[in-house]
Design a protein around this nucleic acid. Structure first.
Lengths: 233, 233
DNA sequence: CGTCCAGTTGACCTCCATCAAAAAGTGTGG
DNA sequence: CCACACTTTTTGATGGAGGTCAACTGGACG
């Protein structure tokens, strides 16, 4: 497993950072880096035993939660630096399925080692806390979105958030390709795919974005932001 | 601060359990137990500096998240044993406000000590992970509720979930008093208070519950469960 | 006893879901 | 390279679940 954290592009955003370099001393390397997942394949499935936390090295994932009756919802989209699998620490098995939306690479970190390494690497523990806490914060904002926002606002928030995250990773915040279908976007936002399509068309008609299928160009960032918060409650 | 974890009723559900007994060795007690919060008062407010994680000893809280434009949503209800404040670990300040819905008591645990105590108490770290992970799981299920369920299903899920949690704490699962207003319930479920009221009235008309204001008696648990999953998607 | 807030219920309306059809894109095998 | 099948996206027409507005009821409390 060639690439180690010290030379990883994600040192700044990946939660274990380069703390893992020295391994565990148990004879096993703590990080399995550069596991590859092809587009459409799963990193883990709901119900799988929990052993590893993952961080995305490159590529794009969605996590899907399923209800007993078969209904399912996308609970998140993960890109480079994002953590996957933390919801499995409590129950000891994965509650959602992680699907690669393009060919991707991940690092896998053996959780049992993180959990028992507080003594030698207190900083590592703290970073895991930070990552999990951030996930809770993110989910609170999704709850606000799902509970309080109109369809137009939801799609605007989605695009702005994606733009923001791409920018933070050095990509263009104004021109990008969606890796997920309208159905996935709708599922994440609590909308039907037709509604997502309509809202994007509306943004196009209003001159806020230019959109051809999954290729999005944001023309008026401020205008998109103005689409939010125009509802009173 | 008289009551210590070893004699606490919540040993089984409270995440730090009785691991805290010995204090930190820094001269400060690690746990401030039995802090009292009166009905209507806040334990912390959005924007407050983060120092303590809390667990509810007795009473009932709601957490409220606010959007820039003033819209706000209830993101959770917490009862004995539940943790409060974990969303502040990452940002170092609280993102939501915790309001006591009845006179309540909490334990406060100094986070900086948890964070630096991995060496002496690895089990404590793991329990914090578990608690945070469980919160993520819970929020995933709320996302499903907000994104996929009808008003009737949401209210049924809410009542069943409350019943379940009360039962786990030794209270009657079929007869209880809501500590929150219809507006709070609606905010949590992404519904208007009138809709919540209508759904409860409907359950009453269907003989599933008897409800007089906040006093709820569940008459047909199985019937309530059947209200869920009758939607196809 | 009057005030105030929470809760209930009704009438109406709006936003988004649903259903449908066509267009555009993608992949596969001949 | 093209034909064909299949998926994704767009757009229109219609309907329904839940929001909005309003009136009324009933406890709680001074």
């Amino acid at each position: 497993m060639p690439p180690h954290c010290s030379i990883c592009d994600l040192r700044e955003v990946c939660f274990p950072c380069d703390l893992m370099l020295q391994g565990t001393g148990h004879g096993n390397p703590m990080v399995i880096s550069d596991r590859r997942i092809k587009q459409g394949e799963t990193l883990f499935r709901a119900g799988d035993d929990f052993h590893y936390l993952y961080t995305v090295r490159s590529g794009f994932f969605k996590t899907v939660q399923t209800l007993e009756d078969g209904r399912e919802q996308v609970t998140g989209f993960q890109m480079s630096g994002d953590m996957l699998g933390a919801d499995a620490i409590g129950p000891h098995f994965h509650g959602c399925t992680a699907v690669a939306l393009e060919d991707s690479r991940v690092c896998a970190i053996l959780y049992s080692h993180i959990d028992s390494l507080g003594d030698t690497m207190p900083e590592l523990q703290h970073r895991l806390h930070m990552a999990m806490s951030s996930e809770i914060v993110r989910e609170h904002s999704v709850m606000l979105l799902l509970g309080m926002m109109t369809a137009k606002e939801r799609v605007a928030v989605f695009l702005l958030n994606l733009s923001q995250r791409l920018k933070a990773r050095g990509y263009s915040p104004t021109e990008f390709v969606l890796r997920m279908t309208r159905r996935d976007v709708g599922s994440y936002l609590g909308l039907k795919l037709e509604t997502v399509s309509r809202m994007i068309s509306k943004f196009r008609d209003d001159g806020l974005v230019s959109a051809a299928q999954r290729h999005i160009r944001v023309l008026d960032l401020a205008g998109l932001k103005r689409c939010i918060k125009q509802v009173e409650n």
